[in-house]
Every structure is written in structure tokens, then in C-alpha cells.
Design a protein around this nucleic acid. Structure first.
Lengths: 341, 341
DNA sequence: TTTTTTTATAAAAACGTTTACATTACTAAT
DNA sequence: ATTAGTAATGTAAACGTTTTTATAAAAAAA
């Protein structure tokens, strides 16, 4: 293996110029049938594959995408990764991944190093930074799940407000009045919107907000577990809980188990996002289902479309909102209230 | 943004040659303090970052690793990915991911496209192909979890035999004689070794093999679920089950639940690999714990080491075997047999 | 001094492609 | 036949680095 085969070797062997070989390979320009055949034959014989670095160098395209997630451990994120990778490889792109450990700093650092590396575009799940930061990136970026207003980027999100609203409404319609919400930080639109949906549902049904029923923390399991225990320790504990993401929901389920309560009778629960435990326990937990894999598909397709458009992508940012669905199982007790769902 | 800043711009601004700038940047060659400072200042001022494609072109290194997994949905694989990505980014490498959907064909296809793309090396989890295939790859590859004998590659594996042996022994020591195993295909060393460990333990304790107690299938949850139901339908059902991976174990747990059996009293269970359900149910399931994240770390470090060594890596293949640990919880009933563990 | 040795810098080739431009070889029209 | 026009191919520049080789400057030895 003294020397990799280059386009020059092919050219020499086929008795044509390198330009002609390049033209045959890329098929854009006209080449006579005879020479095309000849070149293709030599390419096969020598088992020639173009050097991607050299190609990238002149085309200024790497055929690489990046996907950035907060953590790999959350199945929601891996589903989005899978969607993106599937689309990317279908279109001949490779996908670089990175996890920010939910850190604004790490996210920014990876962004910078990605830009150096010349990935063609980035799918960013769970954005952490300021609009200004993202505006300074002069590469196509698609924001997934968490949208930063005013950043000028495209996004694929789900209807967080509606998801929370429907969950809460469902609880109310089953006669619940004391409804708690365990959610993440009110820093980004995901947390904000989910709380807003909850709030609005209560308002629409003229139920007063109880400050103690709002448990704000991070998006991880422990927060769900801890908060659930605290809620049930209140002098006037809630009859129903809305767990605002998959991890929190799992924490809540564990807390309920440890408190020796019965889901659907002692306490009612609706979760956001499917998860292993919600699916396992009896009765199954009613959850808001969102199209996770499809979000990845969508994001990658938007990104690739943007790449094809090239520089003339000064269009207004596109924010695609995908719908959610409330899967109803037995985790909500009917207290014989108003309408029955 | 009419034009990206290149090394030439820096050179001009600093009144030196491009060679000098390159030398300052790479710090290998001696440069006078004065010029170094001058160049560094200009680099900062112009906010210059080297074009990686150009660098790669001449150095023949892309600073990119690839990680290939069967599926993204299995937490075991994401843990290994995380380990690899962490090491890679610490060392300035980017990581490309791909899932083969457990298909030999897709794996081979990605390998080929990776090689074209000039990733510097590959971490392959759950290899599917023949020794010959891997021998034909002239890039560093580290096999994780599943090792292909005779392929000449390095590998990071765990002691599958011991894991299975210890699990089975543990069951036997608690008085069980009718022990079933639900495992994956006997095609690769992982499946083979786990069955061998099971077999050997029975043999060592002079317990006869019962063919009906060996449920061979794929590595997915449904196989665990279905097999468990079938096992309990036998005229002489087992008193204990060894579930040979995380997904199968989850399936088994669900089946037990649906069969209305009590874990640890009606049926005993030991799983391979921690998983969400094993951790949730009461009593918790005893499982073989293996260092998933560390496997990724290890693999990446071996890969990078090999890259640093360069071409003189004609050493014998290194196969590192990491230990496993049996975490004992209440899922195994003590039938008052021989020794007690 | 002058010469030799060492150190710092510059010039230019190389990496493997694509592509704009130049040239040659056809075809068809006059 | 001559010319104009077009289709096919070739030539060479360009992409942005690193690195080898050459040169100039400085330091050390004579």
C-alpha cells in the first residue's frame, strides 16, 4: 500500500486528462460515451475512490452534519438522533454527534469547534444560548424541541402549550381541582409553554392556582421523585399531577410506588412523553405522545433542503410545529366531575 | 463575509511568511519569541481558525472517529457511545455515529463509506461480519462487546462466560435446579459465551441440561416476553430464569407481571445488564453489571493510542476483557439448597 | 576581522480534487 | 471547400494548509 490511487492514476491509465475523469465521476458535463465507458472501466479496475478531503477543499462542502443533544441517556434525544442520522445517510451525509451535558458553555464550545471542522449544518436539540449567539453562527442550524425566539434560525418544535393544556384539561374533566405540575426551569420556551398550558387550562375552568402545586426544578428523574414526595406531604395534597417530561414522570412513578399509593385511585397522573415506566406500570400512565423520531427526520430534511438552496437562504426563519397526542390510559381517576372524557 | 480568513492573511498582516505562521500555530519548530508573539497577536485579531480540510489534506488525518452501533435505542449502546465521544472530544476528535439496524449489510456499507470519508478510526459495537471482511479494512478498528476471532483487530469485551456462569451459579447456590436461559442467537461470541457459562455452571454442579429450558432468539424485548410465557407454560416450568441481556430481561419482567407471578417467590430471575425495569420492580432484579461507559472510554483510548503510534501498529491484536459484577437483590428465592450466597 | 556554525525565516512544492478557460475535433451550413 | 458553430477534451489555476529545501541573519569560533 505504498500509495493511494488518485485521479491522476485513473487519468493516466485511461489516457485522458484528470478533468475528464472528474467530469465522468460527477456526471455534470458532457463526455462522449466512449470515453465515459473507458474511464468507468478504469475506475472500477483500479478500485478508485475520490479523496473526500480534496473534494471538500475545493467544493467547500464536507457532507457532514452535526447533531447536538444535552445528554445521550434520554430516549427522546436518541430518537431524534436516529431520525437525523437516517435522513443524513440516505442522502450521503455523515453525522457527528455531541452531548453538551446540559451546559451552555459546552454547547457553545462544540459549536465553535464544529464550525472550524466545517460541518455543513447543525441540528441542535435543547438549545441553551442567547439569540445573539446563534445569530453569530453563519451556518445552517435547525433548532429542535427548544426554540430561541429572535435567533433567526429554523426550528422543529412540538406544541408544548397544547400538550400541557390538554393534559390539564383532561384531569379537570375528570373532576380534579387540585392539580400539581412538576416541571423544569422556566428559562426556555419548553418549560415556559408547558407551564402556560397548565395555567391556561386552570384559568379556563376557573380553578385557582395554588403556588405550592408548582414544583419547578430541572428535567431529571430525581426532581420528579423528590417533588412528588413533597407534594404528598402537603397538608392539602393534590389529587392529580402533571409530570412535564419523561424523566420527571419516571421519578414520579417511583415516588408513588415508594409512597405506597395506587396510581389511578389514590393519585392521578399524566406525563409528557412516553417512557419505559409509564408503559410498564398498571394502570399505564396517560401521556402526551410526541413524534420524536419524526422530529429528527424533519429537522434533517429542513437542514438538507437549506443546504441545497445554498447561499440564497435569506428567507424568513421557518418554525415547524408538530402536533401532540394525549394517550389515555387508566392513570386518571374519574372523580365524577363535569364532563367525562 | 466575502472571504474567509486564511493563513495568508495572517502572514501578510504580520509581515511574515505563511510557513512561519504555520510554525507558530503548530509549535513544533523554533520561532523567535518576537515573531511568535507578533503572529499570535494577529491570529487573535483576525480571529483566524485554520481550515481543517486543508490541514487534513496534507496531514492525511481527519481528526474524526466513527462509532457504529446496532441500534440507538438500547441504553447499553448509548453508554458506549458516550464514553467514546467523551474521550474523542477531550482529545480534539469529532465522532461520527451510525446504526446498522443489526444488519450485516448496513454495517459493511457504512464501513465502506467511512473509509472513503477518511475517518481516522472506527469503534464497532456488535460486529456482524466475517474475519475476512475486517481484515480487508486497513484502518484502525476496535471491536466492542462482540469479538470476531481471527480478524486481527483489537477489542474491548467483557467476560460473558463469567457473567453467565456467576449468574447461574448464584441461582444454583440458592437451591435452584430448574434454570432456564433466554438468550440471543448463537452466532457470535457474546451469545455463545453466555450460553457456555450457563452450561458450565450446570455441569459443575451436576445438573442436567433441559433442552426446553434454552430459549434462543434475538436480543429484543419481545423475545424475552414470549419466551418467558412459553417457559411457564411447560408441564415442568423452571423455578429460575437467566435473561441474557437487558432487553430480554425487560421482556421477561413484563411477562412475569402479566402472568401474575411474584418475582423472588413464584419465580426467580437474574438479568444481564442493568435496565430501567430491573431497577424499578420490587424486589429489584439481580443483574450482571458491566462497565458500559468504561467500555466506550477504553475503546476510544485504544483507538487513539493506535493512531498515535502511526503505521508501526503491526503488533499482535490486543483484546481487553473487562470484569463484570453480580448485583444481588431480592429477585432470587432461596430454596434452601446447598450453600447460601 | 574572517570564517564557521547555528538559528530564524522565506520560498516553493506538495496534497488530490474541481472548474474556468483554452484548444482541438467534429458537424453542419454556406 | 471553407467557415461557423458546437461538442469533447485538455491545461492550468485554485482551494489552504504543511513541510522540505534554500537563504539570510546572528552567534560563535578562528
Amino acid at each position: 500500500m505504498s500509495h493511494e490511487i488518485t485521479i491522476k492514476d485513473v487519468a493516466k491509465q485511461a489516457n485522458v486528462s484528470v478533468a475528464t475523469v472528474s467530469r465522468v465521476l460527477n456526471g455534470l458535463d458532457r463526455v462522449s460515451d466512449k470515453t465515459r465507458k473507458k474511464v468507468q472501466k478504469v475506475v472500477k479496475e483500479l478500485n478508485y475512490v475520490p479523496n473526500t478531503m480534496a473534494v471538500s477543499m475545493v467544493t467547500k462542502q464536507t457532507q457532514m452534519l452535526a447533531v447536538v443533544v444535552p445528554v445521550f441517556e434520554n430516549p427522546f434525544y436518541t430518537a431524534v438522533i436516529k431520525g437525523t442520522v437516517d435522513v443524513a445517510s440516505r442522502e450521503g451525509y455523515h453525522t457527528v454527534v455531541f452531548s453538551t451535558n446540559d451546559s451552555e458553555k459546552e454547547e457553545a464550545a462544540f459549536f465553535m469547534s464544529s464550525l472550524k471542522r466545517n460541518v455543513d449544518g447543525i441540528v441542535l436539540i435543547g438549545a441553551h444560548n442567547d439569540p445573539e449567539f446563534y445569530q453569530s453562527i453563519n451556518k445552517p442550524v435547525i433548532l429542535v424541541d427548544r426554540y430561541i425566539e429572535g435567533c433567526g434560525l429554523d426550528g422543529v418544535v412540538i406544541d408544548n402549550f397544547r400538550g400541557a393544556y390538554e393534559s390539564t384539561k383532561y384531569l379537570i374533566e375528570n373532576g380534579h381541582q387540585q392539580i400539581a405540575i412538576i416541571s423544569g426551569p422556566q428559562t426556555f420556551n419548553d418549560g415556559i409553554e408547558r407551564y402556560r398550558g397548565y395555567q391556561q387550562a386552570l384559568k379556563d375552568f376557573e380553578i385557582d392556582l395554588v403556588p405550592e402545586y408548582f414544583k419547578q426544578g430541572d428535567w431529571f428523574e430525581h426532581h420528579g421523585y423528590q417533588s412528588m414526595k413533597e407534594l404528598m406531604n402537603l397538608s392539602n395534597p393534590p389529587t392529580a399531577v402533571f409530570a412535564a417530561n419523561n424523566m420527571i414522570c419516571q421519578g414520579v412513578i417511583k415516588a408513588i410506588r415508594d409512597l405506597n399509593l395506587e396510581i389511578g385511585s389514590d393519585i392521578s397522573l399524566v406525563g409528557f412523553d412516553e417512557n419505559t415506566l409509564a408503559d410498564f406500570v398498571k394502570p399505564r400512565i396517560s401521556v402526551i405522545k410526541r413524534p420524536t423520531y419524526e422530529m429528527g427526520i424533519h429537522a434533517a430534511e429542513m437542514l438538507l433542503q437549506k443546504l441545497k438552496q445554498g447561499e440564497k437562504n435569506d428567507s424568513v426563519p421557518r418554525k415547524v410545529t408538530l402536533g401532540v397526542e394525549l394517550l389515555k390510559f387508566g392513570s386518571v381517576k374519574n372523580l365524577g366531575g363535569e364532563k367525562n372524557a
